[in-house]
Design a protein around this nucleic acid. Structure first.
Lengths: 223, 223
DNA sequence: AATTGTATAAAACGGCTGTTTTAATGTCAA
DNA sequence: TTGACATTAAAACAGCCGTTTTATACAATT
């Protein structure tokens, strides 16, 4: 057996990054295999860590998964902030919202875990989903709802606002969750940046058209 | 035991009974738990069969899953034949389309397996998906697109029609694929027949409002 | 220099999994 | 009845799983 004498310059970094390497490796494996099929041994193997590392750093496999889910969401949110146009007009903000959503979905890099992990949560929700919804998704939902509410004006009921917000989000996530079907129905469908721009534009126009009509009806009722 | 049907091949009948119970039980469990979390012991338990029954009738767990997928597809196709409201107005047909879609999604019975199993195919597509898209999904997509095209009129490009059709379908399937998140965001959300009616009504109004706006813009361009 | 706390390593532990083996049961044909 | 065959049942198997235990090495503190 070799007893490697570690370089004192790298000891701190190696130790400090074991947790991080586990998160990265687990993100890969969980996204590829799903929670139950993924094994702690494979995760530790890819991370170059001992089998006990997961239990030491994350209590258990479930704890690791929860952390990975939040980590992936954080990566995604960091790379694609919801939007930064709080001063812009509602129409502009809606388009920023859609584009940000689509960019997240079409990303091929590390945040791609986020999409796959979320899809798996939709099919087999774990306890990790509860925290994710409260900490990450609800703020975004509230943001969109207040945006829709602002556009529709005072006459709009809370229920109508919620339904419209859902209709908007639905168009965005559709391209993620139905991608295998879309690819088969329309083989020419591209997934590049230009396409994101085109889709964001359509979703915005479609949704604003719908909202405009609702607003008109609300005005008619008011009179 | 009564044998009402004078089938001379009683061996096959008895075999088919256990086989059938296994398919039903496995459909439940696979849909609830997913392939890996589901255990053959629980399936056999629900089916009132011995643990070895799966290996006897379906070779192994994977063979059972494949059979369940085909069986669930058959059930869904039987219960929800392709709708035909070709005589109604476009607005009415759109609402019929949305309601039909939502009813399938909110179905708690046997066809619910189909939806959940389909969701798994979205994450890890198998060869079964190709046939499913061509035989079942493409006809529905074409139907909706011709509906949208009819409403928008001659000026609408093929691309615009496709995008609008997707926006409509997206709103329907959203309630299927994002249900775990919706349930957590809005715990009061119901999933009964009245709710289906309400949602179908909203989706129709939202989409028609959007289409109306597109139509108006198309007219303006034409002038 | 001794102690404490943190991080990693190797090995083993129960437990559960899918599957197989072996035996028993029931059914039909000769 | 007898023999052959299909099906069910009980038990055991081998393997993998997540987790724990135990021991060691290192860093910082006293």
């Amino acid at each position: 057996m070799d007893i490697l004498i570690p370089n004192p310059n790298t000891i701190d970094t190696v130790q400090a990054k074991t947790r991080q390497r586990l998160l990265d490796a687990a993100g890969e494996v969980f996204a590829e295999q799903g929670f139950h099929k993924a094994t702690v041994r494979e995760i530790c193997n890819r991370a170059g860590a001992n089998v006990a590392a997961i239990n030491y750093h994350f209590r258990d496999k479930q704890g690791l998964y929860t952390s990975v889910l939040q980590y992936a969401h954080q990566c995604s949110a960091d790379k694609y902030p919801p939007y930064n146009g709080s001063n812009a007009r509602v129409e502009e903000q809606l388009k920023l919202f859609a584009r940000s959503f689509l960019l997240r979905i079409f990303d091929e890099g590390r945040p791609a875990w986020h999409g796959k992990l979320m899809s798996r949560e939709m099919i087999e929700p774990t306890t990790a989903l509860d925290a994710l919804v409260e900490n990450n998704i609800r703020p975004i939902a509230n943001q969109l709802e207040s945006l829709v509410g602002e556009y529709l004006g005072q006459g709009a009921s809370k229920q109508l606002i919620i339904l419209c917000a859902r209709s908007i989000v639905a168009q965005c996530v559709f391209y993620h969750h139905a991608r295998p079907v879309i690819s088969r129905l329309y083989p020419n469908q591209q997934y590049n940046l230009e396409e994101v721009e085109l889709l964001a534009d359509h979703i915005t126009r479609f949704s604003l058209g719908a909202l405009k009509e609702f607003k008109k009806q609300l005005k008619a009722v008011k009179k």
